[in-house]
Amino acid sequence: MPAQLGSCAGIAFPRCGRPGTLRSARDLPVPSQSHPAPHRGSPVTAATALLSELTARAKATAHSGTPTAPTCVCGTSTLADRPDATVVRHADTVAKAHAPGTPLAELTARLTAAGRLRGILLPPLTPTPVALHDRLVTFWPYGTPVDPRNPDAAPWEEAATLLARLHRTPASPGLPAMRGPAKAARAVDRLRAAGPHPATRPVLEAWATLPAWARAEVPMPDTRTLCHGDLHLGQLVRHPAPDGHWLLIDVDDLGTGVPAWDLARPAAWYACGLLPPDEWARFLDAYRTAGGPAVPPHGDPWPALDVPARALTVQTAARSLTKALAADRPLDEVEQSLVDACARMGSVPPELTGTFAK
Rank of each mutant, 00 (worst) to 15 (best):
A159R: 10
P181D: 03
R186L: 14
D134K: 04
A177C: 11
P148T: 05
L163V: 09
F139V: 06
H167S: 07
E158P: 09
A177E: 13
A185K: 08
A131Q: 14
V188H: 02
E158H: 11
L136P: 01
R165K: 11
V188A: 08
P173H: 04
L136F: 07
L166D: 01
A160D: 01
L175F: 05
N150F: 09
P145Y: 08
R135W: 03
P155F: 03
T169H: 14
W156M: 07
A154W: 00
H167C: 03
R149Y: 11
A171G: 10
W140E: 03
P151V: 10
D147Q: 08
L163K: 00
L166W: 02
R168L: 15
S172N: 13
D134S: 12
R186D: 14
G143F: 01
F139Y: 15
F139L: 15
Y142T: 11
A164C: 09
D152S: 15
V146C: 11
L166Y: 00
R168N: 15
P170R: 06
R135F: 04
M178G: 13
V146M: 06
D152R: 13
G143L: 02
R149D: 14
T161N: 02
A154C: 06
A182I: 04
G143N: 03
P141Q: 09
D147I: 06
A159V: 05
T144A: 14
A185W: 02
P176E: 07
A159G: 13
F139H: 13
L136S: 02
A185H: 09
R149E: 14
A154T: 12
T161E: 14
A171R: 01
G174H: 09
F139G: 00
V146P: 01
A159D: 06
H133W: 08
G180W: 13
R186F: 12
S172E: 15
P173I: 04
A177D: 12
V146W: 00
M178L: 12
N150G: 06
R179K: 15
A184P: 04
A185P: 00
P170C: 11
R165V: 07
R165I: 05
R165S: 08
N150R: 12
P145N: 11
L162T: 00
V188Q: 00
N150I: 10
L163N: 00
L132A: 09
P176F: 07
P173E: 11
P151Y: 08
G180F: 15
V146R: 00
P170V: 05
P176C: 12
D152N: 13
L162V: 04
A153G: 12
P155L: 08
H167Y: 11
G180Q: 12
T138Y: 02
W156L: 10
R186Q: 14
E158V: 02
A184I: 08
P181M: 07
V188N: 01
A184Q: 08
G180P: 01
H167E: 05
L162P: 00
E157Y: 01
H167Q: 09
V146E: 00
V146H: 03
A164F: 01
